[in-house]
Simulated assay, not measured.
Amino acid sequence: MSSPSLPRIEINIDCAESFGHWSCGPSDELLMPMIDVANVACGGHAGDPVIMRRTIAAAKKHGIKVGAHPGFPDKVGFGRRLLVMTPEQAYAEVLYQVGALKVFLDEAGLPLNHIKPHGMWYILMQTDEAFNDATMRAIKHFNVPLYGLPNTLHQTGAAKHGIPFIPEAFVDLNYSNAGHLLGVAQSNPMTPEYIYGVTKKLGTTGVLPSVTGEELDIGVKGGPFSVCIHSDFEKCVENLKAARRAVDEVNAELYTGR
């Protein structure tokens, strides 16, 4: 199965990451006008049925594509801690979480756009072949693209299972010098001005700085890709505005008319 290509660089953001009476970050309604794609938490690391349903309604109102954002079922750790799972458990957990979201999408008359695992699940998939394979087998069931990191097991695992692959880049987290995405705790603090500059350079050259400042080619050179911004970060709105400005400038320069 050939992978789809994006017409221009887009911005995706993680949404629905509150639950019950606990709120995380700015409201999804506030963020929707500034994004292209929403990754909706499915009740594992965050989210609950009411919040999933409300977020999908907001996305429909603003014409935003919706993908599933499954993660380790660990709300206390926000899916950023490693839980030990067998491949069978990992496979079933993805089916369970994405299936729950898809019911609400069906109700709203919206398609499932993609699947993008969250946090430590996403990071582990870069290097753990058995965990990656179990996740890919579950994703394959839904016949939608995977948003993932090029030049890692994300891309090769998707190819192995015939899953369309959308390359993704992060500008509010760091990469190691080897090109692996690092977690929040291992990344440097970033200002909106820094995010604007990194996004602009990445869009035009395909290169960004590693955690130690070395230039990295992360595999998005020469074509559009998806940029992720985290909604739970303290300066999320400012970060998103900075990335939006850079993406719009690059698209106007390189991808007008596509």
Score class of each variant (00 low, 15 high):
242 A>V: 06
82 L>N: 04
46 A>H: 10
13 I>L: 14
39 N>T: 04
172 D>L: 01
164 P>M: 05
234 E>I: 07
89 Q>K: 14
27 S>D: 11
162 G>K: 08
12 N>I: 06
136 M>R: 13
62 H>V: 00
248 D>W: 13
223 G>P: 05
44 G>P: 11
226 S>E: 10
183 G>H: 01
103 V>R: 14
159 A>T: 07
131 F>P: 01
136 M>C: 15
212 T>E: 15
17 E>W: 02
93 E>I: 08
73 P>E: 07
32 M>C: 08
29 E>M: 02
137 R>G: 06
95 L>S: 00
203 G>A: 14
168 E>Q: 05
240 L>E: 06
236 C>S: 14
229 I>F: 09
255 Y>T: 14
189 P>K: 08
206 G>W: 00
252 A>R: 15
156 T>V: 10
173 L>N: 00
247 V>T: 15
45 H>T: 06
25 G>F: 04
155 Q>W: 02
148 G>V: 12
163 I>F: 09
257 G>Y: 07
76 V>I: 13
67 G>M: 01
1 M>Q: 06
81 R>L: 10
48 D>H: 10
74 D>I: 00
244 R>P: 11
27 S>C: 07
88 E>S: 08
3 S>F: 12
130 A>V: 09
37 V>Y: 13
144 V>P: 03
7 P>F: 11
11 I>N: 06
55 T>D: 09
112 L>C: 03
197 G>I: 00
128 D>G: 00
111 P>E: 09
10 E>M: 15
117 P>E: 06
191 T>P: 07
224 P>H: 14
185 A>H: 08
178 A>C: 03
93 E>S: 12
172 D>T: 00
188 N>K: 12
212 T>S: 15
184 V>S: 03
19 F>M: 01
258 R>M: 15
247 V>I: 15
57 A>C: 08
176 S>W: 07
125 M>T: 03
202 L>K: 01
63 G>I: 15
125 M>W: 02
39 N>D: 04
119 G>V: 03
140 K>H: 13
64 I>C: 02
2 S>H: 05
203 G>W: 12
67 G>C: 01
211 V>Y: 01
12 N>G: 08
182 L>P: 00
97 Q>N: 12
228 C>S: 06
205 T>P: 04
40 V>H: 03
67 G>N: 01
142 F>C: 09
204 T>Y: 09
87 P>S: 12
26 P>F: 08
170 F>I: 01
83 L>Y: 14
64 I>Y: 02
53 R>W: 11
86 T>Q: 14
39 N>E: 04
92 A>G: 01
85 M>E: 07
33 P>Y: 05
169 A>L: 09
120 M>L: 04
188 N>L: 13
185 A>I: 04
101 L>K: 10
49 P>F: 11
130 A>H: 09
181 L>W: 05
234 E>H: 10
257 G>R: 04
250 V>R: 09
55 T>C: 14
22 W>V: 14
68 A>T: 05
35 I>C: 03
162 G>L: 06
77 G>Y: 02
57 A>S: 11
241 K>V: 10
232 D>N: 10
93 E>P: 01
238 E>N: 06
212 T>N: 15
249 E>K: 14
23 S>T: 15
218 I>S: 05
57 A>I: 05
42 C>T: 11
